[in-house]
């Protein structure tokens, strides 16, 4: 994690540092246990193939949690995530890069909160945005 980002330091259009993820099957099993989502398409290849998939797939909620990590690492230690989420538009598979990115779309002050809105997404190796979403964070001010 780099140093603290302050509200005054960022501009609309700025990208935030990219987070690269790459799930092993072990990570998918750890996620199943931690999240309580035991649907077999995420760890049982035969089961996944019987449902018409080519392989097991990464949980959508795990990709959403990756976007949570992307934002948390960017705003920490003093900033806070206020809202984040995504749509599950495309599949991602184990042992492939999942690049998590964000771009600032708005910054504004509300009361004593210094707020920043972003577009966030995960991208597969073909460049498709498999989990597009949005977020709102609060940042500390130098003021």
């Amino acid at each position: 994690m780099a140093g603290q980002v302050y509200y005054e330091d960022i501009q609309v259009g700025d990208p935030i540092p990219v987070l690269r993820k790459n799930c092993s099957t072990l990570q998918l099993v750890a996620w199943a246990g931690a999240s309580g989502d035991f649907y077999q398409i995420h760890y049982d290849v035969e089961f996944a193939r019987r449902t018409g998939l080519s392989n097991i797939i990464v949980h959508g909620a795990l990709k959403n949690a990756f976007l949570g990590q992307l934002l948390h690492d960017w705003v920490s230690p003093e900033g806070r995530i206020e809202k984040f989420g995504c749509q599950y538009r495309g599949m991602d598979y184990p042992d492939q890069d999942i690049m998590c990115s964000g771009v600032i779309t708005r910054k504004y002050v509300e009361g004593d909160r210094h707020l920043v809105e972003l577009d966030v997404w995960t991208e597969n190796p073909s460049g498709q945005k498999t989990s597009p979403g949005t977020a709102r964070v609060s940042l500390p001010s130098r003021g």
């Binding site: 959508g60 909620a61 959403n64 949570g68 806070r80 995530i81 206020e82 809202k83 984040f84 989420g85 995504c86 749509q87 599950y88 979403g133 949005t134």
Partner: peptide, 10 residues
């Protein structure tokens, strides 16, 4: 059924 998306607000 597919899970279409999730947003958390704290």
């Amino acid at each position: 059924v597919l899970n279409g998306g999730t947003t958390y607000e704290y």
